[in-house]
Deep mutational scan, measured.
Amino acid sequence: ERVRARYDYEAQNEDELSFKKGDIITVLEKDDGWWKGRNGKEGLFPSNYVEELE
């Protein structure tokens, strides 16, 4: 599954994923509120910062 970033997100910890608004992220795992994904790097990000691609 792929999602698009709705906002910029700056990683707060080294296991998190940074991205810019409009970036496409491949979702690897979904957990409550935090998803694991890849966009060149791999890490956790808040699920409310992304939207599913149509």
Rank of each mutant, 00 (worst) to 15 (best):
E1S: 13
I25P: 01
L44N: 08
D8E: 06
G40S: 09
V3T: 05
W34A: 04
V50G: 04
Q12M: 12
N39M: 15
E42G: 05
E52T: 13
F45W: 01
D15C: 14
A5V: 07
K21T: 10
K20P: 00
E1W: 15
W35C: 04
L44Q: 08
D8N: 10
R38E: 08
V50H: 03
V50D: 01
A5T: 04
R6D: 02
D32R: 10
W34M: 12
G33K: 14
K41L: 09
K30C: 06
I24N: 02
V50W: 03
L53P: 06
Y7F: 14
E29K: 11
G33F: 15
S18P: 04
D8K: 05
D31L: 15
R4N: 04
W35E: 00
R4I: 12
G43F: 00
R38M: 09
Y49D: 02
E54G: 13
S47F: 09
D32Y: 08
D15E: 13
A11L: 04
L44G: 07
E52H: 12
T26R: 06
E51C: 09
D32I: 10
L44M: 14
Y7H: 09
L17Y: 01
P46G: 04
R2M: 14
K30P: 02
S47H: 09
N13R: 12
E16R: 01
T26S: 09
Y9I: 02
L17N: 02
E51R: 04
Y49S: 08
Y7W: 15
G33H: 15
Y7A: 12
S18L: 01
I24S: 03
L53V: 11
N39Y: 13
S47G: 09
R4G: 01
D15L: 14
Y9M: 04
G37K: 01
T26H: 10
R2W: 11
N39I: 14
N13Y: 07
E16F: 07
G33I: 14
G37T: 01
W35V: 03
F19A: 00
N39S: 11
E16A: 03
G37E: 01
D32G: 15
R38F: 15
R4F: 05
D8P: 07
G43S: 02
E51M: 08
G43C: 04
K21N: 05
E1R: 14
G33P: 10
E16M: 05
A5N: 00
E54A: 13
T26A: 08
P46K: 07
K36C: 10
Q12D: 07
Q12L: 10
F45D: 01
L53Y: 14
I24A: 02
K20Q: 09
V50E: 02
V27G: 02
D31R: 15
N48L: 10
S47R: 10
Y9N: 04
K41A: 10
K41P: 07
S18T: 11
G40P: 04
D15A: 13
A11I: 02
E16H: 10
R2Q: 14
E16G: 08
L53C: 11
K21P: 01
E42L: 10
D23C: 06
Y9R: 06
I24H: 05
N48P: 06
W35D: 00
N13T: 11
A5H: 01
D15P: 04
W34K: 07
E42P: 06
K30R: 12
R6A: 10
